[in-house]
């Protein structure tokens, strides 16, 4: 009799505990954080039993990457490479991989994407508050130092044909870091995470309930946070680039930050924005810039020729949007 009483109490207790657990899961296995690296806000949300631990490892990784890939931080590995003494320099595996990816993007875009643009982008300095249009002669002089073909990377050895060549991985570093974060989280068995590196949105798996992540695409030239359209993704990233990101006007003329390496001036583009959706974070990051530089037709052709599996939303200067979907999504 007594045992039955106990049994019933234990059983009922178990049932209620089970009910409680099913309600509170999701919150207990969730961790999110925001940090600032590379002058970029990094927002990470992880759903996993070890969410807190994974989150702090992710931010540690961001710090490590900043010390390698930042072109402006005087203590970074890239800064040391740009201020090198010899012609060939041995670099870390991460720096070598990122440079290789950058050189590859230069090749597929026929030089529209050039990681050696630094001498020119330094003149424009869109990051600063002083809005100055550099002199034509200054730009021509700086352009002489630009050319990704003068950089070679074999294994971990980077060789420069020109002592003045400098590398800026700004167009690709965010993609590289998010791919590293994704790779790390997956290797730890995480199946649900959202990574937002200053607007480069990347996802691991799906939402904790199994549904797709919903990512809003910033509407060009509207208040930050205004959504033009949403896309649903699982395991894929969404990266936007556009002339609206950083720009200024001098004497009534607009200048934006996407520079054409062939002229040294802001690209004369028919697009306000390109958004690339795909699985390869590094490639998507570079492609979003490449698409703005090349325009809708040329970029579409290039993507098809290279057989790259991405969807692209082009928004032209008339504010009209056009999706160019990969074969696999049609």
């Amino acid at each position: 009799m007594r045992s039955l009483f106990l049994r019933s109490a234990v059983l009922a207790g178990l049932i209620s505990v089970l009910l409680l657990c099913s309600c509170s899961t999701g919150k207990e296995n969730e961790a999110s954080g925001t940090g600032v690296y590379f002058d970029t806000v990094i927002d990470i949300k992880i759903y996993d039993e070890r969410a807190e631990e994974l989150l702090s490892d992710c931010f540690k990784l961001c710090g490590d990457m900043e010390r390698i890939l930042s072109a402006h931080d005087e203590n970074s590995e890239l800064y040391r490479l740009n201020h090198r003494k010899g012609q060939s320099v041995e670099v870390s595996g991460d720096l070598a991989s990122c440079i290789k990816a950058g050189l590859y993007c230069g090749e597929i875009s026929d030089g529209a994407f050039d990681i050696t643009i630094l001498p020119v982008s330094g003149l424009w300095d869109f990051g600063s508050e002083t809005h100055r249009v550099p002199g034509d002669d200054e730009i021509k002089e700086a352009l002489k130092k630009v050319g990704y073909g003068r950089v070679h990377c074999e294994g971990n050895i980077v060789t420069f044909d020109d002592p003045e060549t400098q590398i800026d991985l700004g167009g690709i570093a965010k993609g590289y870091i998010s791919s590293k974060l994704k790779e790390y989280l997956k290797s730890e068995g995480c199946t649900s995470a959202m990574i937002n590196l200053g607007g480069n949105v990347s996802t691991v798996g799906s939402r904790p309930d199994g549904s797709a992540w919903v990512v809003g695409i910033q509407e060009p030239f509207k208040e930050r946070g205004t959504v033009y359209e949403t896309v649903e993704v699982k395991d894929r990233c969404v990266v936007s680039s556009g002339t609206y990101e950083r720009h200024f006007a001098v004497d009534g003329k607009e200048y934006h930050h996407i520079l054409d390496p062939s002229t040294g001036y802001p690209a004369d583009t028919s697009l306000e924005q390109a958004t690339v959706v795909g699985e390869d974070d590094v490639l998507c990051d570079a492609l979003s810039t490449i698409c703005v530089l090349l325009g809708k037709e040329k970029a579409g052709e290039m993507i098809k020729e290279q057989g790259i599996d991405v969807d692209v939303l082009f928004i032209d200067t008339g504010h009209n949007g056009y999706w160019e979907k990969a074969e696999s999504d049609r």
Partner: peptide, 21 residues
């Protein structure tokens, strides 16, 4: 077998569970 006390205890447990849920 099922004394009133048992039933009260079970009901209490379940209602506590439901309340929290």
């Amino acid at each position: 077998l099922w004394k009133p006390a048992d039933i009260i205890v079970i009901l209490l447990w379940i209602s506590a569970g439901f309340f929290l849920m």
